[in-house]
Design a protein around this nucleic acid. Sequence first.
DNA 1: AGCGATCTGATCGCA
DNA 2: TCAGATCGCT
Length: 804
Amino acid sequence: MTAQNLPDRPAHDLPLLHGLNPEQLAAVTLPQGHALILAGAGSGKTRVLTTRIAWLLHTGQASPGGIMAVTFTNKAAKEMQTRLSALLPISLRGMWMGTFHGLCNRLLRAHHQAAGLPATFQILDTQDQLSAIKRLRKAFNVDAERYPPKQLGWFFASCKEDGLRPKDVPAHDPDMLKKVELYQLYEDQCQREGVVDFAELLLRSYELLRDHPALRQHYQQRFRYLLVDEFQDTNKLQYQWLKLLAGEQEGGRIVGSSSVLAVGDDDQSIYAFRGARVGNMQDFLREFAVPHQIKLERNYRSHGNILDCANALIEHNSQRLGKNLTTDQGAGEPVRIHEAPTDLDEARWLVEEIQALTRNDGFARQEIALLYRSNAQSRVLESRLFNAGIPYRVYGGLRFFERAEIKHALAYLRLLENPQDDTSFLRVVNFPTRGIGARSLETLQQEAGQAGCSLMDATTLVSGAAGAKLRSFHALLDVMREAVAGQSLRHTIAHVLHASGLQDHYRADKEGQERLENLDELMNAAESFVLQEGFGKDAVALPLDETAAGAAGAALTQSPASQGIDLTQPLLNRLLPDTNAETGETLSPLQAFLVHAALEAGDNQAQAGQDAVQLMTVHASKGLEFDAVFIVGLEEGLFPHENALSDKGGLEEERRLMYVAITRARQRLYLSHAQSRMLHGRTSFNLPSRFLDELPAPCVKILGARGFASFSPKKEAASAYSTGFSDTFNLENRMKSAEAAPVSNKSQHASGIAKGCKVFHAKFGEGRVLSIEGTGDDARAQVDFPRHGSKWLALGIAKLTVVE
DNA sequence: AGCGATCTGATCGCA
DNA sequence: TCAGATCGCT
């Protein structure tokens, strides 16, 4: 199926392209050159991406080896892989399709020497990284109060995302100097132990390309087509990495023969907090002098009222690239808004609605989603659902490879491969217990520190009984290593589980049953991994990239774009290279499996109830869609979250988050808020979210709010809802909330705070007291702060001083 | 070593 | 409120 045997007809007549709308078709069949596709929610983005690749291959413009497609999640990568395989019955071997981290790992494995890493380097996940930092903190007597491990980890990651090594970080104050010093120590420790964290994977492979021109040019010539999904989520480093692969930079412009196709939606950028930089979209347009820009605004998911709400809401943001979703599905039903007195009532109402949806309206339970801003909100919902006997599934718990017993097993396996890995050593040296306590380990760590060696190596340096125990652990691993040499991966794991004593330990534990099952599952996972990745006996050992061998040194073969498409190969796409490009070393199945475990933590819930209501945060819902969606807890301070209210950027990101939430719904959308809810152990009173205010009145219907007509009575404003910043709605609203709270006629509190007076609050600044309820310690005051809106503050807790 | 008492802090979470 | 971390006792 190469260019030669294509039928003689225009490329856009291909069956592959049938059913695409004009914009999609234009995107799929773009000529060479860079392009930005602004793909709105539900506009068929994945279809465009996969069809584009299929079209490039089918028309012979590219071979699989000339294409790199990058995603953020394994899920997205798999989805593309599957859909592409369905479109084209050919081998995709040679195509690089995967996550940023997966592809960087692949580069580093192939060129580990050039990158300055050992062949068996291990990947630290967040847990591992945290324990590595805690260890560091202990070794160098770092004030844990002042430098919490989590914060340090975040600091290191953000430095790396900005491409900064310790020497590059500007440090002026002593606090920063200390952090940079710790950053350096952390780097040294990782290097010594042969481990890399997630951010390091990216930075190291960026530096690899940057510092090795021959290697860089090799990949630049190889990958003629670079496709990037969810471009709005890329961070600074990922963008730089893409620039290196795309071509050489001359005068601020990218010069090269490659074509970068970036697909994204600035309105769905919700990950600024973890380094995502929407600005990359504008930078891309400028620095790549992008000639093609296409907007996909036809939505195939939601009814009109839902889209109108989304469009109207997002209009309130500034600095957008600009997009308006349209549909020809018709308006559908209005978006329903419900106000509940308390969070508990909100949950009760929701359960009733769900029952009505499933019983009367024929909605399937798994097609109903409950979305909330923060995880803590799921508790109340879960308990009501549970009481009502409605099956549900919560997204986002511990994932398979993150479970303690699995991490333990993996730690033994990692020590077999890389005995220098101190993190793994410490995790299992006394698990199951071997009488090696904190004292012994302290001595060991001291010895290792002095000798500058790993803990495993330092076991020979400790004297006495402690030393003997440590050395027997050392011996245990040596024996294990010998015993599993040449064995299959399944046998290796089985042996390790037994010989380490893990199995016996959990067998003896009354509550260890589930953990044992998970360990069994680990063996199954390993087996199916081996089959999938082609490590089986029939597997042909193909090098990762034949032409890359020696690229770091000198000789470069010509671009492999000429290689034909091989129909005889099985349909698989390796995320892992079999062979190191420099030395020809082969990655062992065990090593490959460990990489897999680190980069793909697996599903978070095995028991995915067949027909269950789906509960998740709004963040987790991105990319998904449901027939009916409930967005709950739409209150000021919760959604938008109070931590995001202090700056405009934060508020706009909250609004995009709301936009994402709304656009998940196909047919029905419910929005709810409660007048009061339990938050941090206290009842808090919050105004309805301003986002409700930003929805167009004709599209919404207000349910069950006593004393209200079902449609917005407001004439002058288009908004359906009032958040009470200005008008009479607020008064009535407050009266209702008073029903649920201790009521008092007093308008003055013992502290001297009275209705109408000006007060000062440390966080919110100056504000005006609107009303007071309750007496003594239970008293609450409603204060209007110019910058933060109205707040209900408990006078027993909030520190308010009277200004006038 | 391991358990219960006590304290603390609290968005969102991919790889 | 409650989960997680730490502390102190046995």
